[in-house]
Design a protein around this nucleic acid. Structure first.
Lengths: 258, 258
DNA sequence: AATGTTTTAATTGTTATATCATTATATGAA
DNA sequence: TTCATATAATGATATAACAATTAAAACATT
C-alpha cells in the first residue's frame, strides 16, 4: 500500500487538545504512533515502502530531523528497516523473533529479575514444548534430535563439547514443538541465563544427561506427551538442583546446561 | 559512575578495520553499543546520569544530532529515560517489564505467529504460575483473590463485568507466583491475545468458571501445587475448547476469558 | 549480445547554527 | 512560609550543507 491511504500531508495536529507530557506528544512520536497503528490495523505488509527521509519529511510537512527521530524509534522497535543509498529508504521490516530477546534481556537486567525466576520460566516453556513436540514433531525434527544424540555420544569426555550438544538438544526439542512463540521465548531466555559461562559436565553427569535425553527422544518419537512432560520436569529440576545447590534461593556460579 | 570511566573523548574509531555495513557501524550506533555494554558489564545503575545532549556531544566529540540518534535508540530500548528542562537530560531508566510486551506484540504481528500458538504459551505460563502460587502466595495475594471472587459472585449475570473479573483473577493468580518473569510475560501475552474483544460469558459459563476459580483458590490456599496445576490445565483447555471450537486449528472470533 | 567498468544520482550519516517550547530552579514579594 | 515570577537549562524542531555509501544507469570492451 502507499502511505497516502493512512497518512495525508499535514495530517498531524500540532495543537493537540490534551495536555499530555511533551515528549509523548512530540511530532516524531506522533509519526511513530501513526505507523504503529497502521501496522496493527493491517494496513502494512512486510516490505512495504515508507519512503526516504526526504519523502516522509514532505509528506508530514516536518523537517528531516524529526523524521529521522521517528525512523530511529521505529527501527529500534523492529518495525522498519532502513537502507542507505539509491533506492534505499525505510520499509516495513520482516518479523524477527530474535529481536525481542534483546528487549527482554534489557528489562530483566534493569528490573533485577533473578536467575532463579528466569529458570522457573524456562521450565514452564520447555515442559510445554516437550509436550507439544510429541504431537507436532516432523520427521526432520526427529532426525535432528537423533543426530545431536549421536554427536553427544562421542563427546562424553569433552565437557565443553557435550555441554554445547546438550544445549542444542534442548533447543531442538523446543523447535520440534512447532510453536514459534515458545521457540522465540526459549531462545530469549537462553540468551539471558546462559551468557557463556555454563558449568561443564563431567563424565558422570554427561552419561546421566545422555540417558535422559535418549529417553526423551523415545517419548517424543512415540508421541507420549504426558510422559515426555514429566520426564522434562524431572530433568530440569535435577539441573536446577545442581545449579542452585542450596535450598533453592542461592545463586551458584551459573546454571549447568544439558 | 561517570562516563569517563568507560568512555573517553574521541574514543570512537571511525576507521574500523572490519568491513561491516555502514548502518551497524555508524557513530550513533557505536555510542548505543558502548552504553549497552557498560550496562551489562554492571557499570551503570538505575538513575545514573548520562548527561544532556550537549554534554554527550562534547564527551564523544560528535554533533548533537548524532547524540540524539543514539539517545532515541537507547530510549526506545528502554535503557535511558530523557527529561526536558533544567537539570534534565538522559539517565539510566528504571526497569519496566511492561516495556518489552510491546516488542513482543510487534514481532508476533510481523512474524505472523498465530493466536493458537500464543494460547499454548499462555497455558505454559499460567500452569507454572498456579504451581508456584501454592508455594509463594502471601496473605495479601490470598486476600486479593478472595476479593475478586466475591466481586465476581455478584456479576454472574453481567457478562462484561464477570469477564473482566475473571481476567483479573487469572492475573492475580500469576502475581501470587511471585515470579516477575512470569508476571511480565503473562501481561505481555494478554496484551497480544486479548486486545479488547474477549467473548462474553453467559450465566451458565460464568457459574462454571466461578466454581473452578473458587476451587483454584482453595488449592492455592492449601498449598497443593500438583492439584492446582492440574486444575489450571483443565480450566485453560476448556477455555481453549470454547475459543477454538473446531479441531483446534481454526481461529474463532476471539478467545473467551475467565 | 554479454559482460565488465565507470559515472551518476539518490539516500542516509554527520555537522553546524538557530529558534522555540518546556521545565526546574532561583529569586523575590506578600 | 508561601506563592508568583524571572531565568537558565534542555530538548524539539527547522534549515542548510557536505560526506559516505549504494544502486542504477550509461558506457566500453570483448
Amino acid at each position: 500500500m502507499s502511505m497516502e491511504n493512512s497518512m495525508s500531508k499535514n495530517a498531524l495536529n500540532k495543537s493537540a487538545s490534551t495536555w499530555a507530557p511533551v515528549r509523548a506528544n512530540s511530532v516524531a512520536n506522533q509519526i511513530v504512533e501513526q505507523v504503529r497503528e497502521a501496522l496493527f490495523a493491517g494496513n502494512f505488509q512486510t516490505g512495504d515502502m515508507l519512503g526516504s527521509e526526504k519523502d516522509l519529511a514532505e509528506q508530514f510537512d516536518v523537517s528531516r530531523i524529526t523524521v529521522r527521530d521517528a525512523l530511529r524509534t521505529l527501527e529500534t522497535m523492529g518495525i522498519v528497516e532502513i537502507k542507505v543509498g539509491a533506492g534505499g529508504g525505510a520499509r516495513i521490516a520482516e518479523g524477527n523473533l530474535d529481536h525481542f530477546s534483546d528487549a527482554l534481556a534489557i528489562q530483566f537486567k534493569l528490573s533485577g529479575v533473578t536467575e532463579f525466576e528466569i529458570l522457573d520460566m524456562q521450565v514452564a516453556i520447555e515442559c510445554k514444548a516437550a509436550e507439544l513436540a510429541t504431537l507436532n514433531r516432523t520427521p526432520e525434527n526427529l532426525e535432528e534430535l537423533r543426530e545431536i544424540l549421536e554427536e553427544a555420544e562421542g563427546l562424553l569426555d569433552d565437557p565443553t563439547g557435550f555441554t554445547q550438544a546438550g544445549q542444542r538438544f534442548h533447543l531442538a526439542v523446543v523447535e520440534a514443538s512447532g510453536n514459534r512463540a515458545l521457540i522465540a521465548q526459549f531462545k530469549a531466555l537462553r540468551h539471558v541465563v546462559w551468557p557463556q559461562n555454563a558449568r561443564r559436565a563431567n563424565r558422570g553427569i554427561a552419561e546421566h544427561a545422555q540417558k535422559v535425553h535418549q529417553k526423551l527422544y523415545t517419548m517424543i518419537d512415540k508421541g507420549d506427551h504426558e510422559a515426555a512432560r514429566k520426564l522434562m520436569v524431572a530433568h530440569l529440576e535435577s539441573i536446577r538442583a545442581v545449579a542452585f545447590p542450596e535450598n533453592g534461593k542461592e545463586v551458584a556460579s551459573g546454571p549447568i546446561c544439558c
